[in-house]
Nucleic acid binder design. Structure first.
Ligand SMILES: [Mn+2]
Ligand SMILES: [Mn+2]
Ligand SMILES: [Zn+2]
Ligand SMILES: [Zn+2]
Lengths: 142, 142
DNA sequence: TAATACATTATATTTATTCTAAACTGTTGA
DNA sequence: TCAACAGTTTAGAATAAATATAATGTATTA
């Protein structure tokens, strides 16, 4: 509510009219200090839990995709069964905890610039992302 | 056919009996100098085109997953709508050409070791993969 | 070769995602 | 202010990848 003006702005810039469903989605996504990762299913659940209004799945998908297109959200490819999304749109990398199915941000500064020596003629690099899979470290607890 | 013995060995080591359907899948996957990337749909099409036998989708999925589990194939997460698979199981990285929907290998030696400064307590890194998205470079052709 | 365990297949199911089209709402200009 | 219009929401249908099922077929082995 304090941020409604910003959300209206974000929506307008994404080519979307600021409806109450879309503003609710914005509140869930952006009304927090911390960025986070989510699946559509999880987002819908959060909206259901904290909203007095109902938002259809189609609207959630459409709004999320409009935000991705505009750069307000990022899609993280992890497995083929479900998309993960990220409210952190700065350049950064990820740990993926395969046991807990959880993404953890790695700040850009925590990874040395990835230098790729190979080039493809006629093509340029648009983005570089590192995904480090992590698992429990049970080596030291004898 | 020249390699049938190797395929039978691969299948046995994956806990699978060497049936003619599975050997056919092996021929398509491994009977070539070059490694390659594929989707299940593409694999089924290749089998249909070059085989006299028919292999059901279930068998293709099951065999591919057995090989992934054993480490004879790798799954590459790229987008949520479909899995990509890789017959190159060495440690390497990828370009993903978003315009042509095509994966291109980057040899491990062509990327400096990725050094991640952040650690997660109780977790260790299992694998590190770099995906560099590439697009057409139209800057220089004035 | 017979018994058994395992494999193949067509088909059904599941589930994420997208599409559709009818009802609804925000916007705008008279 | 309000009608007209453009854009939006929604339930439900459609699509498509992936997985499960269970009947039939085949490799193995004793
Ligand atoms: Mn998408
Ligand atoms: Mn899989
Ligand atoms: Zn992130
Ligand atoms: Zn590869």
């Amino acid at each position: 509510m304090a941020y409604a003006v910003q959300y209206i702005d974000k929506l307008r810039k994404s080519g979307l009219r600021p409806t109450k469903q879309r503003i609710k989605i914005c509140e869930v996504l952006f009304d927090t200090d911390k960025t986070f990762h989510f699946t559509i299913k999880e987002l819908v659940k959060i909206i259901e839990n904290q909203a007095n209004i109902k938002v259809s799945l189609a609207t959630v998908y459409n709004t999320v995709h409009a935000f991705i297109k505009k750069g307000y959200l990022k899609e993280i490819p992890l497995n083929a069964s479900q998309s993960y999304y990220d409210t952190n749109v700065t350049h950064h990398h990820h740990f993926f905890d395969e046991e807990e199915n959880r993404l953890i941000d790695i700040h850009q500064d925590d990874v040395d610039e990835v230098n790729i020596k190979k080039t493809i003629p006629g093509k340029k690099i648009k983005s570089v992302e590192v995904i480090a899979k992590i698992v429990s470290d049970n080596q030291s607890q004898k």
